[in-house]
Design a protein around this nucleic acid. Structure first.
Length: 934
DNA sequence: TCTCAAGGCCAT
DNA sequence: ATGGCCTTGAGA
């Protein structure tokens, strides 16, 4: 992907600069004394605050505020017709469309906005949107990407290439500073440092020229330009929900802009701080909504239309950190256009691959945080996430399925490491809790990192909120206990809520701000806060302010100290559940927010006193440190319990409602089913069969395990890197499509799916490959009947390994057009092939069933690293683990240990997958399956 | 008609 | 920039 300056980008940029000015005019017109202008201008992120000059952005870079302003214009439901059929609350859309049109100075502006949303405003000179604008936009994306790739390819061809290894080509260039030549088949640390060099050079706005590039590198470099665009369409494929939805706007512009922004993030620095895309509620919401809509149509082929901007999206928040200084900036949801003149724009030409310090964050960015918690790009930037699914991420250490095993009754983990929350091993523990939001107990910023990284499971609504609703978290200390004013964060007993609240009511105790413990004035943006925190949150969101914590992001937020650290204050606001979307785009006073936004609230405005008859007697004494704040929170919780499942996954429901209202009922049913399936629930064999059948139906085993055009790939008639690019694209596409077909797809936010795929794609690949070989490959049975998979038949095993290596040798030689020696092959991929073969033989020996494979696939995907499995994932995972258990017990009654044996093989899959990840030769599994014809 | 949660105003 | 107070307007 490149970020070369294009008229499209610039015109769009200009358009929204104009629109932003227009908005300011509107503000000034609506205000009596022009306060809005002053407020807006003076609170621009560019002048984030004199206290933190380091947070000031370079003006040569697009102002986040501008980006947001642009996006707000583009994404605002007031603009364009797209919102009318998006499921958004009509009161929140239609009326505001009218208002906005009235407010805008002339119709031209409206047309421009609508044109942009229709994907045509990227080039405002092209006239009104045409019916084929969507297709044209998609083509434009592909064309732009292809042009970029072609340009890069041409650049590469101008270099004289010397083949130094059958699978490597080293560009003749100044003598490499890294004397060690990279392995032709592997991605070495040397190459990583080259990546860093490249990025460094890109930051200096100079063309990067790697000293040496393996084929894989070349592939990755070239792929960067195309895959980021194309793969984004994979996630977004099929989002054109209906012909009536004329709203797949932002198509090309969105794709290009999002890709651009994401790439900028990948290398740019903000005051030397590496930014991290942490998502944003609206951002995620929009993307999730789009993906939810996409789930209804999985037949589209990439590149497809970019999802319609169906909801007013909140901005993305980017967290940076350097030297302990945490910086937060607002970024743009997809659809905004990054200024291509930014120095960072050149980074688009840099292969942001394994060496990317940003996207390989599992080993760098989060090295001191939760292992395996590499930043999960919000699905809204799926261009980035998808492109890096295969290449950059998933390096997370500690992929460990033993936690799954340990959760199974009677199963004991073997091999691998037993992870635990708070354990070491590079992971760092989850000691603090975000509910503290910077309170004293937040010793480790780990949770916060994960939260900003887009782990919405740490958000109140997504995790603890739900867990409380399920009565799962009392006194566990995990999740998101409501903050105590004392900062102790001790969760109060759930069953004392009613009594507490009754006492509080009787004493007419004033409400306490959940942020600073000041006197609260009511429910503001989703939680009970004081006027100060209300205004602070509003101003922050409205003006997209940039905050920096000069400490460690753990500042105490009290009434007396709340103004000392804006960063931590806002962090706590988010942490306590304040809803970004509740800050209105149109600044329309009065009234109430739409039901969609309201669904995100932790507290409902209709505060019902709990019925006395239904009260639970207080069984425990009230902790002395339990104050009105805690009681307020408990009241909230209690209300949540009353609302039961209705609030379980409000975010998901909202996203679905925004894009596909008809799905809501279905989703709720599924949620109810999910909740009713408690952890220890065992399914009937009928239910098990049905559930597994759904998994089998959505798997498309052969398609995902093999490559359709393998023959073409094996022919040496095109560039190897192009072939690898095809393979990579195919992997991304197939995995994403598989995810979308999963029965529980709608139960999880898209960002969670993204994170899962990001961390698990390689394991899924190995599992799929091994299972496919075992099920459809030559049925060679080991002599031993031992299921443990021990290499007790070395000859058989070695024979199998040799066979696979021969396959690889033939394939790679064919692809390269040059012979590859077996020694070279063994050196590069020998261990990995052995591991994969080992798993394959194990599966073959136990006669793995397709039904078992699909369950294992879900289980391994839902296994979280470091045991940080969230309740939603655990619920789903245990659902299918239980499903597998029932199936195995019913189908193989004479093999009582079969389930245990199957699950105990998962660490081996992880081990093989980690080698695959390290080698970056993700094409190997496909090649191994290339000779299998079922 | 009332409630309440938005945004706005403006003194600090 | 903050925060107390006011206005606004949809929903109960």
């Amino acid at each position: 992907m490149t970020l070369t300056s294009t008229p499209c980008d610039l015109s769009t940029m200009s358009l929204f600069q104009d629109l932003k000015l227009k908005r300011r005019k509107i503000d000034s017109r609506c205000s009596s004394d022009g306060e809005s202008i002053a407020d807006t201008s003076t609170s621009s992120p560019d002048v984030a605050g004199p206290a933190s000059p380091s947070s000031r952005l370079d003006r040569s870079e697009p102002s986040p505020g501008l980006i947001i302003a642009m996006d707000r214009m583009a994404s605002s439901p007031e603009c364009g017709s797209m919102t009318t059929d998006s499921g958004q609350d009509p009161n929140d859309a239609g009326d505001r469309v009218k208002v906005k049109e009235e407010m805008l100075d002339d119709k031209k502006d409206v047309q421009m906005v609508q044109g942009y949303e229709n994907g045509t405003a990227s080039d405002s000179k092209t006239g009104p949107s045409s019916p084929s604008s969507v297709t044209a936009a998609a083509v434009a994306v592909a064309a732009a990407a292809a042009a970029a790739a072609a340009q890069q390819q041409q650049q590469q061809r101008r270099e004289s290439v010397v083949m130094t290894s059958p699978l490597s080509c080293v560009v003749k260039s100044p003598p490499p500073s890294h004397s060690s030549s990279p392995s032709p088949l592997t991605w070495s640390s040397t190459q990583q440092s080259q990546q860093q060099q490249q990025q460094q050079s890109s930051r200096c706005n100079t063309p990067s020229a790697p000293d040496s590039m393996s084929v894989t590198q070349q592939y990755q470099q070239r792929r960067q330009s195309v895959v980021t665009s194309v793969s984004s369409a994979f996630w977004n494929a099929g989002t054109q929900t209906s012909p009536a939805s004329t709203t797949s706007g932002n198509t090309a512009a969105a794709a290009v802009a999002a890709s651009a922004a994401a790439s900028v993030l990948s290398v740019c620095r903000i005051n030397g701080v590496r930014p991290e895309l942490i998502g944003g509620a609206g951002f995620a919401s929009a993307a999730a909504a789009a993906a939810a809509a996409a789930a209804t149509n999985t037949d589209m082929k990439p590149p497809a239309a970019i999802p319609p901007r169906t909801t007013r999206s909140a901005p993305t928040v980017i967290m940076g950190e350097a030297g302990g200084v945490r910086t937060m900036i607002w970024s743009s949801p997809p659809g905004t256009v990054e200024q291509s003149t930014s120095p960072a724009s050149t980074c688009g030409a840099v292969p942001s691959t394994a060496g990317s310090p940003y996207w390989s964050s599992a080993s760098t960015w989060t090295s001191n945080t939760s292992s395996g918690s590499s930043p999960s790009p919000s699905p809204g930037v799926s261009e980035e996430s998808a492109a890096h699914l295969l290449l950059n991420l998933g390096v997370a250490a500690g992929h460990d399925v033993t936690s799954v095993i340990s959760h199974m009754p009677g199963l004991r983990p073997i091999g691998g490491q037993q992870t635990s929350v708070g354990g070491g091993g590079g992971g760092g523990g989850v000691q603090g809790n975000i509910g503290a939001g910077g309170q004293q107990s937040f010793h480790v910023p780990l949770n916060m990192e994960r939260l900003w990284a887009g782990d919405l499971s740490q958000l109140p609504v997504a995790s603890t909120h739900q867990m409380h609703a399920l009565n799962l978290t009392a006194n566990t200390g995990a999740g998101w206990p409501m903050a105590s004013p004392n900062g102790d964060n001790k969760p109060a007993p759930v069953n004392t809520y009613h009594h507490q609240m009754e006492e509080a009511d009787e004493q007419d105790q004033p409400m306490v701000c959940m942020i600073c413990d000041d006197r609260a004035t009511g429910l503001h943006y989703g939680i009970i806060t004081c006027e100060g925190c209300k205004g602070f949150f509003k101003r922050t969101v409205q003006n997209r302010r940039i905050y920096t914590c000069i400490a460690e992001g753990t500042c105490e937020i009290t009434k007396a100290q709340r103004n000392r650290c804006q960063y931590c204050r806002f962090k706590k606001c988010i942490g306590q559940g304040m809803v970004l979307q509740a800050v209105r785009e149109d600044r329309m006073p009065g009234g109430r927010n739409s039901g969609a936004v309201y669904n995100l609230y932790k507290v409902k405005y209709k505060k019902k006193r709990p019925p006395k008859n239904g009260q639970v007697k207080m069984e425990k004494s009230v902790p002395s440190n339990t104050t009105a704040s805690t009681m307020t929170a408990m009241k909230t919780e209690n209300q949540d319990n009353n609302s039961s499942i209705s609030t379980l996954v409000n975010g998901t429901i909202l996203k679905t409602a925004l894009t596909n209202p008809s799905e809501v009922v279905y989703l709720r049913q599924r949620l109810d089913n999910a909740v009713s399936s408690s952890r220890d629930r065992t399914f009937s064999i009928e239910a098990t069969v049905n559930m597994i059948k759904n998994l089998v139906d959505c798997d498309e085993f052969q398609d995902i395990a093999t490559l359709r055009n393998m023959e073409d790939l094996l022919e040496h008639n095109s560039d190897l890197s192009a072939k690898l690019m095809q393979i990579g694209d195919s992997i991304v596409y197939k995995l994403v499509q598989w995810t979308k077909r999963l029965p529980f797809y709608l139960e999880l936010p898209v960002e969670v799916h993204t994170r899962l795929l990001t961390h698990k794609w390689h394991e899924l690949l190995v599992l799929t490959t091994s299972a496919y070989q075992a099920i459809h490959g030559p049925q060679k049975i080991w002599n031993s009947t031992n299921i443990n998979g021990d290499r007790n038949d070395d000859s058989e095993f070695n024979q199998e390994v040799s066979h696979n290596l021969c396959i690889l040798q033939n394939c790679l030689s064919s692809m390269m057009g040059k012979p590859i020696t077996m020694d070279q092959l063994r050196q590069d991929v020998g261990v990995m092939v052995e591991k994969i073969t080992h798993v394959t033989l194990m599966f073959r020996r136990v006669k793995l069933r397709m039904e078992e494979y699909v369950c294992l696939k879900v289980i391994i995907m839902l296994t979280q690293n470091n045991g940080n499995t969230t309740s939603e994932l655990e619920t789903i995972q245990e659902r299918y683990t239980s499903c597998l258990k029932t199936y195995v017990e019913h189908t193989f009654p004479m093999q009582p240990n079969r389930l245990q044996d199957l699950l105990h093989r998962l660490p081996e899959i992880q081990s093989a997958a980690s080698l695959l990840l390290e080698s970056k030769m993700f094409y190997v599994p496909f090649l191994l399956n290339s000779t299998i014809r079922s």
